[in-house]
Each structure stands twice: as C-alpha cells, then as structure tokens.
C-alpha cells in the first residue's frame, strides 16, 4: 500500500505543473485522515510514505500541514475537513506558521481545545525559512469558525512530520551525491574512485539509513515520546552531516542556484530546526531519562 502511494506521489512531484491540484485529485493530501472524517483514510505509515516522497522531491507544498497536522486534528475534534490547503499552529506560538498565507484555514491547538479559523478570520504577514517555504506571522481574529476537543501535542506531531520529510531529503542528498561521484572526473578518474570520497559517501549513507529506520520505527509508535524524540534528534543530526558531505563532494557546483542540490540542503537546514532541533529533543529526552530508573528499560520501552 505505502509503496504504491509513494510511487503515485513521486510521479506527481516529478511531473511538475500544478502539483497541489494533482495531489488533491489523487487524494494524496489527506492520507492518514480517516475517511469518515472526510480524509482519504490509510495509516500513518501510508501518510509517511507520501510525505517522505515529498521530502525527496523537495516539493514546495503544505502536505505535512494539511493532512498530517491540521486534517488529523480536525478529525479528532469532530470538525469538518475543508477542501484546500490547511495549516496548524499552537495558540501561543504564531510567529512562524507554515504556509499560513496559502491556507484555506488554520487549526489552532489551544490547550485541550482545537480552534479552527477559516481564511478571513486571520492575518498572515509573510516570512520564510531558508528554503523559501512560507513561515508566516499570524494574527488570529476574535472568533474561531469552529471549536472542538483536542488532546494532541502539536510539537510532537510536527517533529515526527518534519523527521519524515528529512529522511526523504536525506535520501535525495545521498542519491545526488552518489550520482555526482560517479560522473564527475578529476585527475583522470571519477571522484568515487578516491577512497577519501568513498569513505565520506559511506558516512552520509550511514547517517541517512540510521535516521530513516529510527523515523520509520517512530511512525509505528507516534504516541511514544521517546520514539519521537529519538527520531527527530537523529533526523536533525543527520541533516547537518549529510548536507556538509553532499556539498563537499559536489564541490563548487553544488553551491550554485542552478544545481538541484540546494533545493534539498536548504530544506535539510530548515527542517532540522523546525519543531525542535536535535539539541532541543536531546534535552527533552535527557530530562525524561534522568528521571527514569533504571535507564535501560526506559530507553528500549520494554
């Protein structure tokens, strides 16, 4: 199921044109949101397969925000799922709301309540992350369009979503680097013939694979705070290492606007910070671990 979804999503992202319209037509914007709530249904692993592909293709669309975040929050609150792109925010953190200017509405987590604000009931002052993705300052109007109950922690959900996107981008950085090392010749041979380059590419692969398996495991246990903290910490950590190695291997060509590498690395550098960096999640996990005794059962959750 998730392989098929990923393949469909990949065709859409690689196809260009109006990607959002194509995703909507294919029902891919609300995978993981139950069908009886107006979504496309499917599991969180299915949603992750689509999101990972979006990360791989550096797709500039509010996919994580619409389904993974806002769509699930609205469904859990018993509120209708509007058509069109959505986003989500915490009531006390409206400074960098992703894609707010493009959103049909915002799902705002306000303690144990979810407030939904339709377009027209909020203002969005443009801002952006390093990759140019909208991160807008939002001012909410006096009245939400609708409200319902909420038990979710938005930061945890957002961290897992960004971790999934990061693993897609890490994979792309690896693939681009492997390809370049095979094509680019210096001193009369491909870069990949040099052991120093081989070792660096292997390190990039190691970080990408370990982050990927950790994030996949966390997607299967999204309510386990240790799993999510470890997943985002590893994905964010891998982002820095992977971007550095990818650029080092690509040389000067990789730092140009013309080469696609920057579409991935700018996202790696942005997403590793969003919803908590590796440092923030390590501190969070460390706080829990300090209080736990003994350490080993806490760490493995068994």
């Amino acid at each position: 199921m998730d392989d098929l979804l990923a393949a469909t999503a990949d065709r859409i992202f690689a196809g260009g044109g109006d990607v959002w319209a194509a995703l909507t037509a294919a029902g891919l914007t609300t995978v993981g949101v139950p069908e009886d709530a107006g979504g496309s249904g499917g599991t969180l692993e299915d949603a992750a397969a689509v999101l990972r592909t979006a990360g791989y293709r550096a797709a500039a669309v509010p996919l994580a925000e619409t389904g993974w975040l806002a769509g699930r929050l609205l469904a859990e609150a018993g509120l209708p799922l509007p058509d069109g792109p959505l986003t989500a925010a915490a009531a006390d953190d409206l400074a960098r709301v992703p894609w707010a200017r493009d959103a049909r509405g915002i799902a705002v987590v306000n303690g144990d309540r979810l407030d939904y604000y339709e377009r027209g009931r909020f203002d969005a002052a443009p801002g952006a992350n390093l990759a140019g993705e909208p991160r807008d300052r939002v001012v909410l109007g006096p009245e939400p369009t609708a409200s319902g109950p909420c038990t979710a922690d938005l930061r945890t959900r957002g961290a897992l979503a960004r971790a999934v996107q990061l693993t897609g981008a890490l994979r792309r950085a690896l693939d681009l680097t492997v390809r370049y090392a095979g094509e680019r010749e210096q001193f009369g041979r491909p870069l990949g013939r040099f052991q120093a380059v081989q070792q660096a590419v292997a390190e990039l692969a190691g970080e990408a694979v370990v982050a990927d398996v950790a994030v996949r495991a966390a997607v299967r246990a999204p309510d386990d705070p240790v799993a999510v903290a470890a997943a985002k910490a590893n994905a964010s950590r891998a982002a820095g290492t992977a971007a550095a190695i990818a650029h080092q291997v690509h040389g000067a060509l990789g730092v140009t606007a013309e080469h696609p590498l920057h579409t991935v690395t700018l996202r790696l550098w942005s997403w590793r910070e969003e919803y908590g960096s590796e440092h923030a999640w390590a501190a969070e996990l460390g706080g829990r671990a300090t209080a736990a005794s003994p350490l080993w059962p806490f760490l493995i959750g068994a």
């Binding site: 999640w281 460390g286 671990a289 760490l299």
Partner: peptide, 22 residues
C-alpha cells in the same frame, strides 16, 4: 550517579535508540 546533564544524556539516549532500531 547523576553524572550526566540532561542534554548529554539525551544525545546518547537518542543515538542508542536509533542504533538499536537499525
């Protein structure tokens, strides 16, 4: 012993969790 600050312990815990999964 309580010898590690939370950030250091958490960094190791996160890494161990991921490597065990791998």
């Amino acid at each position: 012993r309580g010898a590690l600050p939370a950030a250091a312990l958490g960094r190791l815990a996160a890494r161990l969790w991921a490597l065990r999964q791998a």
